[in-house]
Design a protein around this nucleic acid. Sequence first.
DNA 1: CAATTTGTTCAATCATTTTTGAACAAATTG
DNA 2: CAATTTGTTCAAAAATGATTGAACAAATTG
Lengths: 164, 164
Amino acid sequence: MSGSSADSDTRMSAAQHEMVELFMHFGHNLGLPKSVGAIYGLLYATAEPLSLDAIVTILQISKGSASQGLRFLQNLNAVQVVYLPGQRRDHFTAERRLRKLANGFLRERVEPHLEHGADRLDRIGDAIDPDDPNAVHLKKNLERLRNWYRKSRQILPLVRNVIG
Amino acid sequence: MSGSSADSDTRMSAAQHEMVELFMHFGHNLGLPKSVGAIYGLLYATAEPLSLDAIVTILQISKGSASQGLRFLQNLNAVQVVYLPGQRRDHFTAERRLRKLANGFLRERVEPHLEHGADRLDRIGDAIDPDDPNAVHLKKNLERLRNWYRKSRQILPLVRNVIG
DNA sequence: CAATTTGTTCAATCATTTTTGAACAAATTG
DNA sequence: CAATTTGTTCAAAAATGATTGAACAAATTG
């Protein structure tokens, strides 16, 4: 009813397939589930927004996976909902601007860990027993770690600058 | 025979324990197995080089895990072997210079994926069917992806510069 | 060179994470 | 408002990835 050629709604072209695999592998690198990479890859390689149902059919994954994966991608600002007039279903499209994508990723997946790490460093400091013969060594290397955190924080704006 | 206090060979101090956990979590972020983070954390928090056997005893992990984890860390240049005179066993010590660590990580875990990704992009280009109505869209976005790769390559030297 | 120590390998096991799918709730339609 | 469509949730199943430990090889010792 909606597609132009017979099965443009149910099958990927070879190039789309390659894109799906590219993003699956890339996502896997970053510790994301395969389904998330696949969904993003498909949307990236498709001009028109796709419904959840189309994604399920084309990628042959379960509705549950698709639903969770899409939510995840929306939280990252990697996918947007497009409301098509007269269409009941939500449709989804990939955010293709690297700046937006990287920002989402840094905000959701990198910064929280940096925060958390800084807290942990404080906890280590508190846990050093002054009587421990190792105390001097521990203090010195804790300082060194704080330095690492300082540097990783410096890198963030730099990255934003290059990709902006 | 070698330790000074009763069980300095078999137990961690509270601070050491916190360090182990810090690196376990951090490593997990980067997609490394827990055991790898734990080993590095222990070595980081310990002034003297430790033998494989000491690591097994203190962390309570299997010899196999320790052996594999140490090899992995050596490949990353995150751990070095120290040959102690008169000691038969290998002893291991943590590389604590961020520059060396980050270089190892970039070289072993980041750059190969970038290479591989570039190859994939070429494959996608080859897979685009000129008759596909989507071809224009695919070509445009493939170009965009090449741009991403270009930018991520720019980031590497920048990172090296900040941490150097 | 036999006995012992040390470290590696890898198949089997265990733990964690992801995916599935059926039950459900919410929204929409006629 | 009953029927249908759409999307979410979550317990169970499947898949993936890490760890174990026993068998092995290499090196060292007396």
